[in-house]
Design a binder for these strands. Structure first.
Lengths: 206, 206
DNA sequence: CTACTAACATACAGGCTGTATGTATGCAAC
DNA sequence: GTTGCATACATACAGCCTGTATGTTAGTAG
């Protein structure tokens, strides 16, 4: 047991306080929403005062960004843990998408990452975060599939973004009670539709 | 010219005031965001007081819902106007998606309908609105394509939702400065990938 | 040991939301 | 038409929240 008011270095204090604030905020932001959660409530849950919060974060939005960042990293880590390294390109994509949908079932994650995140931080900021974490894996999987000729060649960034958007919407729908099987079926169909079985019909450019 | 304080029926007054409030709110919500727009600013722009607002709408969120509803209807109408009635199923889908992307270029529409809308009203409410307007056309187009055997049979609701999600993300990306051509190419590839050229490889259900 | 700085806590100002209350106008019945 | 009620507002108020400014304690460098 450690006695109260142990002597701690400033670095330790900062780290601990920041972690406490992020953890408390994460809990409240996922239970309720960003707008419905006030900073007085957050600091009370973290056991500090608003002074500490505004010392460590520029504003409420910056604290939110830190929470989103951490949660996106957690999702990415769950996916990487679930998807074995070397598979056929298509199987790796499917394993990854299943892992993503599973990870997004954690309570409140969809609202945090898919609803409040884009609205509060903007799509650009969310893209930047996603590309540093979860989307990286997806993008690499797509590049690998194209290189292995298991997928038609397409602009990679756009394809990554659009598939990610479909995954996101699927996660939201499943959480809202839709048939997970239906959505999984369609996701697989969209992915398999990109296989190069036949020469693609000449696309009328205009 | 009509003299001031003309005698108007209550129904006319209500309709005019509601329309003024919605128009003023729409302008501000699209120029800034929902969170950054205060009710004092809205009523000032509409030329009434906050009393009128809270007489006609339950709260700020209800006014926002009315704005979103109207804007979604406007988008749907632009699409229907742009897409000729009888085409081959695939061409109709492409024309519709182009029309959607064009309609979403109106200033502030993406934030209103794709960012703030889901965050403030929730995905369920936005789905309900979308299904009453824009998504109806998409869904019918998909059903027609499947019936004409121009598209593999898939769960229609899930497919509609996921394609709509992809369109939405494309609209956001294009507004953020991404290559519209790239996104259009990928969207077409996703749609064409659903054509039944070959028997689909046996999907391992698990 | 001294001086400076980081890590907080406390106090304050401004703004916003929603509600309660007051007032004038349309409207319906007699 | 006037009496009475409901509708359409305007005004006033209470509570909360955010961000900042200021004060205090604890670490840390010289």
């Amino acid at each position: 047991m450690q006695q109260k008011s142990v002597r701690r270095s400033n670095r330790d204090r900062t780290e601990a306080t920041r972690a406490d604030l992020i953890a408390a905020a994460r809990k409240l932001f996922t239970e309720k929403s960003y707008a419905e959660t006030g900073t007085p409530e957050i600091v009370a849950a973290a056991g500090v005062t608003r002074g500490a919060l505004y010392h460590h974060f520029a504003d409420k939005q910056a604290l939110f960004a830190a929470v989103v960042e951490q949660e996106a990293a957690a999702v990415a880590e769950e996916i990487e843990r679930a998807s074995p390294p070397s598979l056929f390109a298509r199987d790796a994509l499917i394993a990854g998408s299943d892992a993503y949908l599973a990870a997004m079932r954690a309570r409140g994650r969809t609202r945090l990452l898919l609803l409040d995140g884009p609205a509060v931080l903007g799509r650009a900021a969310m893209d930047e975060i996603d590309n540093r974490h979860g989307n990286r894996t997806l993008r690499e999987g797509l590049v690998a599939a194209m290189r292995a000729q298991a997928m038609v060649k397409l602009p990679v960034d756009a394809l990554t973004a659009l598939l990610a958007a479909a995954f996101d919407r699927a996660a939201l729908a499943v959480e809202a009670g839709a048939s997970a099987d239906d959505y999984r079926t369609v996701l697989m169909a969209l992915i398999d539709g990109l296989s190069p079985h036949q020469a693609p019909r000449p696309a009328r450019t205009r």
